[in-house]
Design a protein around this nucleic acid. Structure first.
Lengths: 225, 225
DNA sequence: AGCGGGTGTCAAGGAGTCGTCAGACGGCTC
DNA sequence: GAGCCGTCTGACGACTCCTTGACACCCGCT
């Protein structure tokens, strides 16, 4: 049974979601503020979180960061704000999807299913990522190039792991910095340049013209298979 | 069965729409003023609303706001072609499309189908938008044209993403500028012209006669599938 | 025909980002 | 303490991208 944690300070929204989700066979946990949400998440281990950004105590983005500190549970953000700045902030912090209020219940349910589907699919996925020149084994944390093991430092590995877990996907600088160096270091894009260069020197055939560790100027980096 | 709410104070237009829509299998609800429209919408839960802006009691824009307060139902605005400022206002308030009077029944029906299609598609969560010449993958942030990857700059991508997330829908200049360049740049329509031109050069077969990135003079732009 | 608003196009500059190197700093082992 | 390793920092050239201005165009209006 899939369990959903609903976090919102508006009782009528929580109530509406509880009714609709229960009717469809979900187990529903609730919280009305950020602190409660975090502790309920720890205890209840929900399979997916529906989070309103406008909470009475802590900023929603910090709740996302708090969850992402130890969990990869899918997070769907609810918000009345339509401006893209808030949206990007939430997604960069690690949210999976974004729904603006007012929302249709059908739409939310569809996104919920999609989020859970993505998650389970990701977990079943092969934990070994291969390119033409090197392979990344995510379970034993080892990288091979031409059948020879390549030694990576912890930071190098942290960076490569995130990219390898999102093959073909564009990963934003903010997300990389936040997940490897912590949320306080978003902005230190120099780190990224240095460590991407090191990874390329160790893994790419022609580090000056990378084929797999691709820069998308102004946006982020991409692990090209 | 798809139900349509028609809101107009001119009886002959309501009648004409009722006949044409019924004949095509739509269930038709009607209202002759704004207040009635809002209450009928609450009770009838229409799948799409056709709304004349010139109503006897409340301003059409406020009707849109009233609907948007609790519903994401697609709204197609009807309007006499003189008051273009009002039309932009309507789009910014959350309307999905507009049709100028006098209108061809075929055109209205096409817009209606497009609006409904857009809505259901959104719920199914299809993150890849396809046209006859290029595809936009919203999850991995990639664009392909003729099986070749096309590189976009951050601004180009930002613009295309908003349009692609609202296929078939007319998006106002104000909304585009506000979401890509920030709320302070809502007057810099020159940006839009420059970047739309770049997108067309990269994506359209004949950039001088675009088939998918359409300009609606005075209003905004539309991503035509 | 002339005018003006909105639009499409192009090119040039300047701002900002990226890759790279080299060195400083701190923790660890021997 | 010496040597090693990993991380951080500053500086530089090279490059990309954004902005801006100029001008032609289309179309409705006077």
């Amino acid at each position: 049974m899939t369990s959903v944690l609903v976090v919102d300070d508006e009782p009528q929204i929580v109530k509406a979601l509880r009714i609709n989700l229960s009717a469809r066979g979900y187990h529903v946990l609730t919280a009305y503020d950020g602190k409660t949400a975090l502790s309920v998440a720890v205890e209840g281990k929900p399979d997916v979180v529906v989070l309103d950004l406008g909470l009475p105590d802590i900023d929603g983005v910090e709740v996302i960061a708090g969850l992402r500190g130890w969990s990869t549970v899918p997070i769907i953000v609810l918000s009345a704000r339509t401006d893209s700045a808030t949206k990007v902030e939430a997604l960069d912090a690690g949210a999976d999807d974004y729904v603006t209020k007012p929302f249709g219940m059908d739409e939310l349910l569809a996104r919920l299913r999609a989020a859970v589907r993505r998650k389970t699919k990701q977990e079943v996925d092969e934990p070994i990522v291969r390119t033409s020149t090197f392979t990344v084994d995510l379970t034993v944390k080892k990288v091979h190039r031409d059948d020879r093991e390549v030694h990576l430092t912890p930071t190098e590995w942290g960076l490569l792991e995130i990219l390898a877990r999102n093959p073909d996907r564009l990963v934003s600088q903010k997300q990389l910095l936040s997940e490897v160096w912590g949320p306080t270091s978003v902005g230190e894009s120099q780190y990224l340049r240095v460590y991407m260069a090191q990874l390329r020197r160790k893994l790419e055939r022609d580090p000056a013209h990378p084929k797999h560790l691709i820069t998308e100027p102004g946006m982020g980096y991409r692990f090209q298979l």
